[in-house]
């Protein structure tokens, strides 16, 4: 690691003031940041340890229904919180499928959304041609090994995917990411938080320097929701494809569906066209569900080695819907 100075933050005001200085970075759980420092992915000169900021590590019920989750809550604490387990199983499952028990004791939910791609070229111990490491150096994956890369929303500048599991659940839940910044805070819809590579391939998300995530707000409970993660080993591995489904049902009929796919693009990918067609479908009618899902794949574009992910993603979406329907409300 390149040398840096360190300070522990104890007030929100000081934190966002100090964070605004270029070259400073927040440290929450550290499970991403430390690896970036070791690989030279980022080289901040000032580290602001936000892990002990007060008041950002609780779950609270919102007055009109819904929950607010403090950004510094550890992943395990979010996933195992009684209200999350009961009302937002998709989020609980997504988290428990992420990383490892030890990492989830360190990693925060806010930091999780800020993780960068796991593209092997990007994560290499040497700096390889990669626009996300160094803009203009090219994309090694485009014509290289890309079997686990994007099928949606990629450009020739970058074909990577966003690996966060919780982000997929949050996108399907229409969660809101609440931030604080020296120039005022924002409320950002989860599905719009991450950036596709079309304009600034080096950027991952919409946050500005020094903008702090304080909370994640979940709307009304979604007890009929589920997460499905596909990976070659059973645990402690990133997804090849994942799917989050949130359903409202009348008996066996879907009233409303929200679907998001993970690890298929640089942001969680909402299947809006499919969602529209799913309204009114019978849960037992696999063909109708599949036809609906198909709608959203018109825009899918495979790379040289990952056409299989398209089929896989369709099945994952279907299975996630069926799994969600089995969750009791």
């Amino acid at each position: 690691m390149t040398p840096f100075v360190y300070a522990r933050a104890d007030s929100l005001g000081d934190t966002i003031a100090a964070g605004a200085a270029p070259d400073s970075a927040f440290l929450a759980g550290g499970t991403e940041l430390l690896n970036w420092l070791r690989l030279g992915i980022t080289e901040p000169t000032r580290i602001i340890d936000i892990s002990r900021l007060d008041g950002l590590d609780q779950v609270e019920a919102l007055p009109g229904g819904g929950l607010t989750i403090g950004a510094l809550m550890h992943l395990n604490d979010v996933a195992l919180h009684a209200l999350v387990v009961r009302d937002y199983p998709v989020l609980s499952q997504a988290i428990l499928n992420a990383a490892s028990p030890q990492l989830r004791n360190l990693a925060t939910i806010g930091g999780n959304l800020l993780q960068k791609t796991r593209c092997a070229y990007f994560r290499a111990e040497e700096q390889l041609p990669c626009n996300k490491r160094q803009l203009g150096s090219g994309c090694s994956a485009l014509h290289g090994i890309n079997d686990n890369h994007a099928i949606f929303g990629w450009t020739e500048d970058c074909v990577a995917t966003q690996p966060s599991d919780p982000a997929v659940a949050l996108a399907a839940l229409d969660a809101v990411i609440v931030t604080a910044h020296r120039s005022g805070g924002r409320r950002i819809p989860a599905a719009e938080f991450h950036l596709l590579p079309d304009t600034r391939p080096e950027a991952d998300n919409v946050l500005q320097q020094g903008e702090l995530i304080t909370a994640i707000e979940l709307p009304a409970p979604a007890p009929r929701s589920a997460y499905l993660k596909v990976r070659e080993r059973e645990s402690y591995e990133y997804a090849i494809v994942s799917a989050a489904a949130v359903l409202e049902m009348d008996g066996q009929t879907i009233r409303r569906a929200a679907l998001a796919l993970g690890s298929v693009a640089l942001r969680p990918w909402r299947l809006s066209a499919a969602e529209e067609q799913l309204a009114g479908a019978e849960i037992g009618d696999r063909e109708a569900l599949s036809t609906a899902i198909e709608q959203s794949f018109a825009q899918a574009r495979p790379l040289s080695q990952n056409a299989y992910k398209i089929e896989l993603a369709k099945t994952a979406a279907l299975r996630a819907i069926e799994k969600a329907a089995r969750m009791s409300s």
Partner: peptide, 29 residues
């Protein structure tokens, strides 16, 4: 591994199991 990928460094921090390679010592004050 030194990258959070193996668990060989697992210790208890305030009673919770964590990967010691992913923690800056100074933050353990």
């Amino acid at each position: 591994c030194n990258f959070g990928e193996c668990g060989a460094c697992t210790v208890h921090l305030d009673g919770r199991r964590v990967n010691a390679c992913m923690i800056l010592a100074v933050s353990c004050e």
